[in-house]
Amino acid sequence: MTNSVAPTLVSEASLARLRRAAPALLLLLALALASLLSGSTGGLRLASPDRSHVDQLRRVIGELPSGSLVLIAFDADLGTYAEIRATTRAAIDDLAAHGVRLAIVSFTPEGRAIAAAERDRIIRAGSADPPADLGFVAGSEAGLVRSIESIVPSGAAGETFDAVRQRGGGIGAFDMVLVVSGSDISARSWVEQVGTRLPGLSLVAIAPTFLDPELEPYLRSGQLTALLSTLREGVAYAQAVSAGSASGPGPTVGPLPMLIGMLAALAVLAEAGFRRLGRRGRRPARRRARP
């Protein structure tokens, strides 16, 4: 008779690793299932019922005369752009539908990468008049201030570039600026550096949710003309823009996966709270046990 150990397909360490990863993997699985079922969740709505911010942006865009010049300052982060992607595209569609002439500029390298990709997408979709590309301006806030004087690259040729040059060649040539915010150059930088130098310029912003507490005061004080800075507002705006067009609102985040994710976050919070309470409850008993 020999002492033999039965061969195991999975080692103990691998099992322990999988056990540790199980909650995260289950969450991913739940999100995947929820994404698949998201189309049939009639009772759930992600769009914000408060339409004041949406109406504000729609009114500002609606008041622009046809042929106006609008600058899209694309400085979103690669990490957070997915959250505002649908809103930004809806805003570009909204502006195009009102017959404005668009130009795109970036003051951050990440923003430039996203702007180039978005412009390629618009061209690929067959747009007859894609936004004029003003490129990347280096120097962060100093570059922003320099662009007030001159923003058109020297060799650029085209109808929109000529129109900007005729009006002075700087940011002041535009009737409105749509700031697609990220963490490096946000709408705050525009308010501080451009808004103070060009007080008559209309600044509107789209920002990821984490910037909302920072940007909301500028909207209240009137330094920003309009602001969409939460996911729910973004979805409501995309739906409002698509309501008047034949195409749908485009892919937006579904309400069911968001609900499941929020429930998971609450569960983690509750578990941590109960664990802490349990530890606090055990502490006096240990003290009593000491001699």
């Binding site: 991913l28 999100l31 995947a32 994404s35 957070t80 997915a82 949710t209």
Partner: peptide, 27 residues
Amino acid sequence: GGIGGWLGFLVVSRLSLLVDRVAFLLG
């Protein structure tokens, strides 16, 4: 309390990114 509120905003923001990535894989 204020920081907690901001953290709540951050959770929603990051969660939407995760959901978007799952949707990218599936879609």
